[in-house]
Design a protein around this nucleic acid. Structure first.
Lengths: 195, 195
DNA sequence: TCTATATGCGGACAATTGTCCGTTTAGATT
DNA sequence: AATCTAAACGGACAATTGTCCGCATATAGA
């Protein structure tokens, strides 16, 4: 069997992440090139690109802990509220999302830019974090469908929510439009939760 | 005085636009490189880049007529419907937006990318087209407020609509999510127009 | 018409991203 | 331990974006 990750591959993986984190922290994500990361880590560019097809994936991996924490928080909250009405759980999920964007927008903007400036524009929509959040939203919308005559479309609604909650648009709301985080939460609840 | 545009510059400007339009129409925006445009037009790359700092600006110039037409169309439609119920006019505006994004998504994506990857992330939200559309949406939402007890916030709602209608997200809806343009229009109406 | 120069021209060049492919090696099998 | 092969390695290479700078010329002013 050749199914386990080879030791050298595993070592390089850690080396890449450590090197990238250091360089990003020192110079900023946008100022660091993939070539520079490979050079600094002392590996070939092919090695780097085999593991991370582009900078966005690398950023994504660096964000993994943060993203996992969000997903766990959300899952825990939903579990705790599992007896509560759908609307309440939906609202809690929206709150989590807004809190997350609010706390991490500085980190999320480079990540968002990298994904969105890809030639393959669907890259972001295949990222683990998007898929998981869309999934969580969809199932709540779906749950809400039962017994309703005019059905929302879960896929459409969750996609729309996540599109509108991009970090750039969020900062604009807090900046020029002058909303506070709590106001934004309220508006999201009002718009997307049909009470 | 040396203030007027030189004749050769003016000629090249037209030549660039014509060449770019032809190439974009033939091969698609993403498949055409700036180098290729310059080569085909028979001019140097420096000439091309002096006039358009990047592909986004070129797209922007190519879109100018189209964007003006959109704004005029919308204004004309709203004028024609000025006696109609607010909901009907709101719906017509959403339809216009979706038709526009649908028709021009290829050109809008480079434009969107350029705006969004700016250091100044608010650049897009100060662009004429965003401001005009947000304005039109806001005034319709505001109009709808009268006589309602639970008020929508015009600024928030119109910002959210425009964020969610970005060309990348739109293409994702039509691609992986499999919606047709008409379905998308319906979903937008259902979500944002409280009948 | 002639001249001076601001303006435009264009291609070479640098930087970055992403691919390819011959070489090396970890580790399973014997 | 020896062998074998799938997986990983790494650097050269191609493509694209964007910059720079010496050269050419349109045109205002004489």
């Amino acid at each position: 069997m050749r199914c386990r990750e080879r030791a050298d591959a595993s070592d390089n993986r850690k080396l890449i992440l450590q090197t990238a984190k250091t360089l990003f922290d020192t110079y900023g994500v946008n100022e660091v090139s993939m070539h520079q990361i490979a050079k600094t880590a002392g590996i070939g560019q092919g090695t780097l690109y085999r593991r991370y097809a582009h900078k966005g994936e690398l950023c994504s991996d660096l964000m993994e802990d943060t993203a996992n924490a969000l997903v766990e928080d959300i899952d825990a909250t939903l579990e705790k509220l599992k007896e509560a009405p759908t609307e309440e759980r939906f609202g809690a999920l929206l709150d989590h999302l807004v809190d997350f964007i609010d706390a991490k927008s500085q980190l999320l903007i480079p990540l968002h830019n990298v994904y969105m400036s890809e030639k393959d524009t669907t890259a972001f929509f295949r990222s683990p974090i998007y898929l998981h959040l869309k999934n969580a939203l969809s199932s709540l919308v779906e749950e809400r469908l039962r017994g309703e005559d005019e059905a929302d479309c879960p896929a459409f609604l969750s996609h729309t929510i996540l599109c509108s909650l991009n970090p750039v648009g969020y900062l604009q709301m807090k900046g020029d439009l002058g909303f506070t985080k709590e106001e934004i939460k309220q508006h999201y609840r009002k718009l997307f939760i049909r009470a």
